[in-house]
Amino acid sequence: MSIHASAAGASIVLDNLTVAYEGHPAVHHLHGTFAAGSMTAVVGPNGAGKSSLLRAIVGMLRPAEGEVRLLGVHPGDIAYLPQQTEVDRQFPLPVGDLVAMGAWRRSGPLAAIGAELCDRVREAIHAVGLGGLDERPIGTLSVGQFQRVLFARVMVQDAPLILLDEPFNAIDERTCGDLIALVHRWHGEGRTLLAVLHDLQQVREHFPQSLLLSREKVAWGDTAGVLTPEHLSRARSLAEGWDAHPAVCEVRPH
């Protein structure tokens, strides 16, 4: 599959980013940069703001404070793999059509999906190991098969920036292996990758960079230096610090 002219070189700058639900911060005063071509795992306890961070980068959540700056990428040229619960899997749509959604940047709402795009769609479905299932309704797929379909859509999107929200949840070992191989391939093509993950073993094996999040940044950098026992226990204790009536945050942006 050909690489998009601007497939490489996208970076994300977080400038004092705070995302809040009803005033309670899910992501708190986050600073830093996801460098172009980096491959970063976002880890942390439940409720640490991992998915919220991704949604803020995509633009689905508006920051309560600070901002996200995307460099070297057109707004909207982001491939976002949502958690499966956000997709209506009962919708009567064939696999091929869902994967073809990935062509939106080129086809828009009206243009025909030409022969070349059809080939790309078929290739992508083949590449995720579902060759021949183009006509199957998405409602008849298993969780693992559907995850492969979402990965195929990301392939067709061919975006310089790829955000994966818990891509390997409830996925068996073999599927997981296949999908990780894809992620490595995207990394090799110079795309910038972010993935929310829970399996620390997997992160250590495959992801060079990590961001340990627990509403605020606990550690960010090389995975080996981030996933230390001290950092992990600090992340846990931060997550447990729940207060029904917290004081108002007075941190000033520096």
């Binding site: 633009g59 707004p75 909207g76 982001i78 949502p82 919708f91 959604m101 939106w104």
Partner: peptide
């Protein structure tokens, strides 16, 4: 099917 998709691709 996937309202988040359209938001991501604007």
């Amino acid at each position: 099917v996937d309202p988040g998709f359209l938001r991501a691709v604007q």
